[in-house]
Design a protein around this nucleic acid. Structure first.
Length: 502
RNA sequence: GGGCGCUUAGCUUAGUUGGUAGAGCAGGGGACUCUUAAUCCCAAGGUCACAGGUUCGAAUCCUGUAGCGCCUACCA
C-alpha cells in the first residue's frame, strides 16, 4: 500500500511508520480513537470462570472484551495475540477462515500498544492456553510510540520514574506496589473510622508554618499580596480542633519540606496524624502498634515482614525502651542528664558526633542516639522519653523536667512514627516558642515560628491529648520491600529533563 | 552541599592494550492454520548523554556540563 516506506528504524522512523499506518486506517474509514466500548467481562473474570475448562474444549460462551495489544505471534493463516486490561491478560486467536482475508490482515496490521475491543468465543487451545477465538474486533485507540521490550521490560530506573505510565504498562511488580499502597491507605482509614476518629482536611497553605522542625516551601498569594507556606505538618491545626471539641481526629494527606532528596525523602510526602483527647503517649503507643499490625495484615499473611534482607517480627508485642536505655544497651554508651554539659560534649567528640556550640544536653543526647542507635534497631521498637530541648510541642515528662512524654517507633533502622502527650499549657507553650524564635534569630532555619493564633486557641483550653504522626511512604516501603521512597510514590519528584526528549 | 560511579539503536545489552560499534527483542520484507520469549530466511536501524581537549586515529584517555544511582550531610 505504501511503496515509499523508509527502511530505517530509529525512534522517529518507528513513530513515522505508525503515523503512516494511522493515515492509511483513516483513509479506510476506520475510527482511530473510539469513545466507548461495552465489555461483557474483565479479563480476570474470564480467567476465573474458565480455570477448569479442558485443553482443546470450547466454552460455548461469546464474550466482548477490550485491552492493550501486548504481543503478536503471526503464524501464517492463524495468529495468536495477547491483550491486557486492568485485571489480567488473555490470548486472542485469529484465523483467516473466521475473519476473511481483509479483516484478518487488518487486525494483524495493528501495532503492539494499540487498544482493541474484540468479540468471540472463549476456548482453550490444545496446549491449554485460555483464549478467545475472535469473530469481530475494532480499534479503540491507536498507539504511536513503541512500548519497551516484552521480555526484559523497562529496567532503566530513571525512565521508570519519569515515565511511570510506561513502567506500569510493562512492569507488573511496579503496578503491584501501588495496588498494595492503596490497600494500606484504605486500611488506615478503616482503622481510624472504626476507632471513632473523624477524618478532617486542614489547610495546606499556612500563613505560619508549624508543627515540625523543617524548612518550608514559600509561595505567594496574589490577591492578598502575601507569602504563604506549604505546610510542613498539619499538627497545630489538628490540635485547634481538639480545642473546638472534636475528641478524635485524623488527617491523611500531603506535607511538604524544602530539604534534601534521598532514598528516604521526597519534597512532598504523605503523612498521617491522629489526635485523641484524654489520652497520653502510652495510649498512642498502643494505638500505633494496633494500627500498624492491622495494616500489615491487609497486605501480607505472614507476621514476618522481609525488608531488604531484614526480618521484622510483627507478631510479638513490640519492645519499649527509653532513649537513655537504648543508648546504653545498643549504643554501648552510658549518658544521663545529670552529667555536666562539658562531659556530654567530650563523649560526643569521642563518637565523632558533630555538636554545635549552642546545643544543650538534650540535643547532644539525641544526636548520639541518632548516630549510635537508630540505624541499629531492626525490630519494631518504641523509643520513649525524648529530650525536651528538641521537642517544643510535647508535654514535659511527669518525672523529669529535662524530658518530654514522647516516643518514636523505629524499625529497619529508621523512624516510622512519632508521638507525644500534647503540651496543653499555653504559657509553657509560649516559652517554648520563644526559645525556638531565639534559635531562628541565631540562624537555625528549621526552628519553629511563634504562632499567636495557636496560643490563643490553647488559652481557651485544650483537653489532655495524645498525638501521633506516621510517615506513610516509609511504612509502604517497608511493607512492599521497596528500597527507595521513589518506588512507592507514583510520580516522584525528578529534575527537569532539560529538552532531552526521549 | 561533598565524594564515588553510570549514560552505546525504541527497549535489554556486548564492546579486549585507543584502530572507527556487535547482538537479542520491537519495527520492515518473505515462509508458516495451536503458538506462547513461536520458529526460519532476508534487509535495515547508532551524533556511543552533551561540549571541548589529547592523538595520525577516541565509545575507550583528559576536562567541563547535564541527568540518574550509591555513600555522606540535613530531615520524616
Amino acid at each position: 500500500m505504501n511503496q515509499e516506506k523508509k527502511q530505517g528504524a530509529d525512534l522517529s522512523e518507528l513513530m513515522g511508520r505508525r503515523l503512516q499506518k494511522l493515515d492509511d486506517l483513516k483513509d479506510k474509514g476506520i475510527e482511530l480513537y473510539k469513545t466507548k466500548f461495552i465489555r461483557t467481562h474483565k479479563l480476570s473474570q474470564i480467567r476465573e470462570k474458565y480455570v477448569d475448562l479442558e485443553a482443546g474444549d470450547k466454552s460455548g460462551e461469546a464474550v466482548k472484551v477490550a485491552g492493550r495489544l501486548m504481543a503478536k505471534r503471526r503464524h501464517g493463516k492463524a495468529s495468536f495475540l495477547v491483550i491486557k486490561d486492568g485485571s489480567a491478560t488473555i490470548q486472542l486467536y485469529l484465523s483467516l477462515n473466521t475473519l476473511g482475508d481483509e479483516r484478518y490482515n487488518l487486525f494483524l496490521d495493528f501495532d503492539i500498544g494499540d487498544f482493541v475491543g474484540v468479540s468471540g468465543e472463549v476456548f482453550k487451545t490444545r496446549r491449554g492456553e485460555l483464549s478467545i477465538s475472535v469473530d469481530d474486533f475494532e480499534l479503540l485507540t491507536k498507539s504511536l510510540r513503541p512500548l519497551p521490550e516484552k521480555w526484559h521490560g523497562l529496567k532503566d530506573i530513571e525512565t521508570r520514574y519519569r515515565q511511570r505510565y510506561a513502567d506500569l504498562i510493562v512492569n507488573s511488580d511496579a503496578k503491584d506496589v501501588f495496588i498494595r499502597r492503596n490497600k494500606i491507605i484504605k486500611a488506615i482509614r478503616q482503622f481510624f473510622n472504626k476507632e471513632d476518629f473523624m477524618e478532617v482536611e486542614t489547610p495546606m497553605l499556612h500563613p505560619i508554618p508549624g508543627g515540625a522542625t523543617a524548612r518550608p516551601f514559600i509561595t505567594y498569594h496574589n490577591a492578598l499580596d502575601m507569602d504563604l507556606y506549604l505546610r510542613i505538618a498539619p499538627e497545630l491545626y489538628l490540635k485547634r480542633l481538639l480545642v473546638g471539641g472534636f475528641e478524635r481526629v485524623f488527617e491523611l494527606n500531603r506535607s511538604f519540606r524544602n530539604e534534601g532528596i534521598s532514598v528516604k525523602h521526597n519534597p512532598e510526602f504523605t503523612m498521617l496524624e491522629a489526635y485523641q483527647a484524654y489520652a497520653d503517649y502510652h495510649d498512642m503507643i498502643e494505638l500505633t502498634e494496633k494500627l500498624i499490625k492491622k495494616v500489615a495484615g491487609e497486605v501480607t499473611e505472614s507476621k514476618i515482614i522481609n525488608y531488604q534482607g531484614m526480618e521484622l517480627d510483627f507478631g510479638r508485642p513490640w519492645k519499649k525502651m527509653t532513649m537513655l536505655e537504648s543508648l546504653e544497651k545498643i549504643g554501648k554508651v552510658k549518658v544521663s542528664y545529670e552529667m555536666a554539659l562539658e562531659e556530654l560534649r567530650s563523649i560526643a567528640a569521642e563518637f565523632e558526633v558533630a555538636v554545635d556550640s549552642k546545643d544543650g544536653k538534650g540535643k547532644i543526647i539525641s544526636e548520639l542516639f541518632e548516630k549510635l542507635v537508630e540505624s541499629n534497631i531492626v525490630q519494631p521498637t518504641f523509643i520513649i522519653d525524648y529530650p525536651l530541648e528538641i521537642t517544643p510541642l510535647a508535654k514535659t515528662h511527669a518525672q523529669n523536667p529535662e524530658l518530654v512524654e514522647r516516643f518514636e517507633l523505629i524499625m529497619a533502622g529508621r523512624e516510622v512514627a512519632n508521638a507525644f502527650s500534647e503540651l496543653t499549657d499555653p504559657r509553657e507553650q509560649r516559652r517554648r516558642f520563644e526559645k525556638q524564635a531565639a534559635l531562628r534569630k541565631a540562624g537555625d532555619e528549621e526552628a519553629q515560628y511563634l504562632d499567636q493564633d495557636y496560643l490563643r486557641a490553647l488559652q481557651y483550653g485544650m483537653p489532655p491529648a495524645g498525638g501521633m504522626g506516621l510517615g506513610v511512604d516509609r511504612l509502604v516501603m517497608i511493607l512492599t520491600d521497596s528500597p527507595s521512597i521513589r518506588d512507592v510514590i507514583i510520580f516522584p519528584h525528578m529534575r527537569p529533563e532539560a529538552g532531552r526528549e526521549r
